[in-house]
């Protein structure tokens, strides 16, 4: 037994070579409302390894979106710390995290390419470099020839692709996604999931993805974090040991069903 135990750290390194990029500890959030203070998040602790695809799933109103907004520095927690690349997140820092929102939220007065280049324009990047980088991102999301179109000329799925391109354009190591496909129809949603995995494997970003869809969670994730109803806390954490690339057929498999069921058991119980 002794030699095995000594070997173990080496094995761990081989399985999980990634270093932690996001570290959250002791996170609590209470906000005031007309009916008194609301305890939204309670004692959240999580670690996200570099290059991992982590999905946070939970019932609506469990605070998963709030948690993501805190990771983005867009909202402030009551207590606890959030570290990203070793430094605390207190304000939005587009060099460290890119964000994709539930509604694509593109600026209707800008073309697709100018929307993608928007974060660069804020940084005073030169016009030529902006165009080149935004164009490369549009190519990446499969919209290389739609750069000149305005948002009202794009379909819902295309808008969300532009939004993903915008989230990636500053090349941040982390991409935060807040139910990005929730407003899409089922077919588009499936296609976008596949597309996202392709983009992810091409860029090797760390992704933290929030959803309330169990299928989406298992299909996309390396690791699923399950949150409970309010006050939101992390009640389960599971590795998705399905090979990549993921396929549609896997959804009918036993592993998929077992994981999906395990999440369901966790989130349905408190809802009763």
């Amino acid at each position: 037994m002794q030699p095995l135990a000594e070997l173990k750290p080496v094995v761990d390194e081989a399985i999980a070579p990634e270093r932690p990029i996001i570290q959250v500890s002791g996170l609590d959030h209470v906000y005031p409302s007309r009916d008194g203070p609301v305890h939204a998040l309670s004692d959240i602790a999580l670690t996200v390894g570099e290059g991992r695809f982590v999905v946070i799933v939970g019932p609506s109103g469990c605070g998963k979106s709030s948690l993501l907004m805190m990771l983005a520095g867009l909202r402030h927690q009551t207590a606890g710390t959030i570290l990203c690349s070793g430094r605390p997140i207190t304000d939005p820092d587009p060099d460290r995290v890119g964000v994709v929102f539930q509604e694509a939220n593109l600026f209707p007065w800008l073309t697709a390419i100018d929307n993608v280049a928007f974060p660069l324009a804020l940084r005073g990047v030169s016009r030529a470099e902006r165009a080149a980088r935004a164009n490369a991102m549009l190519e990446l999301v499969g919209l290389g020839d739609a750069g000149g179109r305005y948002p009202h000329e794009l379909s819902g799925g295309m808008k969300q692709r532009v939004s993903i391109a915008r989230g990636l354009v500053q090349d941040p190591p982390v991409l935060l996604m807040d139910e990005p496909f929730a407003a899409l129809d089922e077919q588009t949603r499936m296609a976008m999931g596949e597309e996202l995995l392709r983009i992810w494997s091409a860029t090797r970003k760390t992704v933290v993805f929030v959803t309330h869809s169990l299928t989406e969670a298992v299909y996309l994730a390396d690791e699923v974090l399950v949150m409970s109803a309010r006050p939101g806390r992390i009640v389960d954490r599971m590795e998705v040991e399905l090979p990549r690339p993921r396929t549609y057929e896997m959804m009918a498999g036993a592993v998929f069903g077992r994981l999906r069921d395990r999440i369901w058991q966790q989130i349905k119980a408190p809802a009763r």
């Binding site: 867009l74 509604e103 600026f107 928007f118 804020l122």
Partner: peptide
């Protein structure tokens, strides 16, 4: 407000939000 929020997420200053949003 969504547009202002997005601009903030990408690190826009108050002046940039005024000018660009």
């Amino acid at each position: 407000p969504d547009h202002v929020f997005v601009a903030r997420a990408f690190g826009a200053t108050r002046a940039q939000i005024a000018w660009r949003v």
